[in-house]
Each structure stands twice: as C-alpha cells, then as structure tokens.
Design a protein around this nucleic acid. Structure first.
Lengths: 212, 212
DNA sequence: CAAAAATTCAAACGATCGTTTTAATCATAC
DNA sequence: GTATGATTAAAACGATCGTTTGAATTTTTG
C-alpha cells in the first residue's frame, strides 16, 4: 500500500487539527504541513477552508448516522413485531452505543468525535449549521421513536429529556479527552462500561414520572 | 448615572462578543468598537487579550460559584440538622437552579452563561484552564455531598452521573440560545419550568439502581 | 494654578491569515 | 512522441490580527 492520495491526507490532517486546536485557530498552513502537501492543495481540491470542514464532518458523520438510524429502525421493527412499545433503553442504546464504539475504532475517529462534540457549541453559524443539518433527521427519528416508547409523557418533556441525553453524551466525550477532574481515589471505568453507565442514567431520566 | 468606566465597558462588550462569536474569532478591534473605547485600551487596562477573557470569566463566575457553594452548604447543614442523608434532588437543585436563574437576570448574564457553557469544550488550553480552575472546587464540593447522599453507589458512578447532569445543563443552555430543533407542534416550556424538568431528570438518573 | 500621574488617542509594527496567481510537473490520450 | 488535462509547486496578494509606541489629553495631586 502506497501513501493515500492528497484529498484523503488533507482530510485526515484537518480532522486531527480541527479536533485538537479548533476550527478557527487551525490554519491551512498547519493542515497542509501536517498532511505533507502544498498549501494551495486545499483550495484546489476543496475550494475553501469552509468547504474543507464540511467534508471533514460529512465523511464520517454520514456513515455514523446511517448506522445509528439503522439501529433505531431495528428497535422500531422489533417493537412492531412484538406489538409492544419500543423500550426506551433500546432507543437510547441505538444512538449512544454506536457513538462511543465508533470513537474507539481509531485515532481519526476519536478526533472526529471530539470535533462533532464541539460542533453543537460552535459559535460560527456556518460551521454549526453544517453539523445541524446532518444530525436533524436522525434526531427527529429518535424523537418519534421515544414518543412511541413513552406515550404518556408530553412531547416537550420527551424532547428536552432527549436533549439532556445528548448533552450528557457529548459532555462525556469531552471529559474522556481532557476535562476529567476525578477526586483522588476514584477509578475511571473503561469505555465499554461507560457506555452502559450513561445508557442506564439516560433511561432512568427518560422514564421518571412527570406530574404536570 | 453617567456612563460606566472604560474597564467595565470593555468587559461588557467582550462578554457579549465572546459569547456571540467565540473567543478566537472576536478581535480586539470589534470589542473596543462595541465598547466605544480606543483599541489600545484593552492592552492598557488588562495587558492582553488572554488576560481580558480571564477577567470576563472571573467577574461573573466567582459570585455565581459563591452562591452555588452557599446553596450546597445549606443542603449539607440541613441534612446534618435532621441527621439524614442530603436528598440528591436538593444537591442538584443547589447547582442547577442558580445557574438558570442567573441566566435570566440580564443580557450580560445570559451572554456569560453561553460563554462558560462553551468554555468546557474550548480547545485552547489556556482559556479552558481559566474556567476549569474556577469550577473545580465547586465540583468537588458537589461530588462529596452527592457521595453522602448516595453512599450505596460507587464513587466513579457518582462522578460520571454528576458529569452527565452538568452535560445536560450546559447543552440545555446552548439549546436555549440557538440549537433548538423542535418537531412541529411541540411547545417549549419556560425557563422556570425547564429548571424543574432538568432537576427531575438528573435526580432520577442519579438515583437509578446500579448492579455492578 | 502648576506639576505629576493616569488615561486616551492615532498610527504603525511585524506576523499570520485565506486565497489567488503563474509556472512547473505529472499523468493520460491520441 | 506529442498534445491535453490534472495536479503540484513556489510566490505573492490584500486583509486582519494582537501588540506597541509616543504624543495628546484628561484627571489627580500638592
């Protein structure tokens, strides 16, 4: 296997540096140097820095969302087959598990997860919208399935509780990178265990009673 | 009342713009123009852009953390007085309620909350550390109180569940700003109601059983 | 009021940014 | 082999960045 082509090398380097330094602080010069390509290659192959971050996000998020969507559909099908409501824990697992599993699948994937975790809070409208438009359909799908799972709850409660789960998940992924401030004597669970911990937590929160 | 002094006008403008555009993309020229002061005023009064963001954060976070710390201490005292374990919902409320209430107290406060919500994910080490060092003692205090509240749970479980609550809270505040993607026909609750919704959610997640 | 200190101001510094240009190099087709 | 198109290369563009300078101005002090 020879070295990858220019476009892929740029995408890999951009993914790494955008995750490590952020979108704005990362210069095209740093990216092209890391990728060992000419400075002009970014504008030649992608057109602009903005188009580059767009491709960096889409390259991984589209397959990941397809997987999550497939998992959600399986939960829905299984519920229909059993003529039961879909268990909320399965709904949450279909979204959360692929995310954390994908993060462990490699160096680039890990950088990417850091990157999209920050995309939600990104102040730059264009960058944030790139991510939002890709996540919106999946979030809608999960919301409708959660609504089927917990029909006794008001829709706005379900909506916010799903947001809480997403917030917990993204915050967790940031903490796994660098924000851990564990008190002395507290061990950190592995990624697999953490997956269960967060799913249990989110499911308990989703299922909790709600008196209007 | 005449106009505020230069330092305060700079802090207000910086708070607003850092929240709206982010730290790196916001230039000192934009800040000083918004504050209607000379460009050199920032370096004269604060020394550097980094020292400015430091003061922007500290100015509001120190009083807010003092309030949250006081609320936590009250929960601890009340539990000791009753010779009972502190209710986890009270622990969470002591942290969450002041945050959302503070956010509603004014335009600057709202911008500030947006700003610190993003500080956790900030890639720039110096900026993130400014925030981390200020939040660390409070987080530790909350952790120890939660540990008293739920002594049957392993410490690492408590730690991560607290992180989940913080993640849910910060994500919620981002959503209140701009990431809301409500499906059609779903009403959004007011800030007061939202405070209860998130506290109930976090408490249910904290209390959920844990089989090792 | 005059001297001294603090603050404001306009201007410029060197550095870095994303992007463009133009020529050189490579691959591919006839 | 030579012409054609795709890619790479080096260099420069104009713009903007944080910071500094030194004089003008305001405020404070004796």
């Amino acid at each position: 296997m020879g070295k990858k082509d220019t476009k892929e090398r740029i995408l890999d380097a951009a993914e790494l540096l955008f995750a490590r330094e952020g979108y704005h602080p990362t210069s095209l010069r740093a990216i092209t140097k890391e990728a060992d390509v000419n400075l002009a290659a970014v504008n030649y192959h992608f057109g602009s820095k903005e188009a580059l971050i767009k491709e960096v996000i889409a390259r991984r998020l589209l397959p990941l969302n397809a997987l999550r969507s497939k998992r959600l559909q399986e939960v829905k099908d299984e519920a229909q087959r059993k003529k039961q409501k879909p268990p909320i824990k399965d709904v949450l697992r279909a979204f959360i598990e692929p995310t954390l599993k994908f993060r462990e699948s490699g160096r680039g994937a890990r950088a990417f997860v850091t990157l999209v975790g920050r995309a939600i809070t990104e102040p730059d409208d264009t960058v944030r919208n790139i991510f939002m438009e890709l996540i919106q359909p999946l979030f809608r799908q999960m919301f409708e399935l959660a609504d089927e799972s917990l029909p006794h709850l008001p829709k706005d409660i379900i909506l916010w509780r799903l947001h809480f789960a997403i917030g917990a998940l993204t915050h967790t992924m940031h903490c796994m990178d660098k924000c851990i401030m564990p008190p002395p004597g507290v061990e950190q669970p592995g990624a697999q265990a953490l997956s269960s911990i967060i799913i249990d937590y989110a499911a308990a929160g989703m299922e909790s009673a709600h008196e209007s």
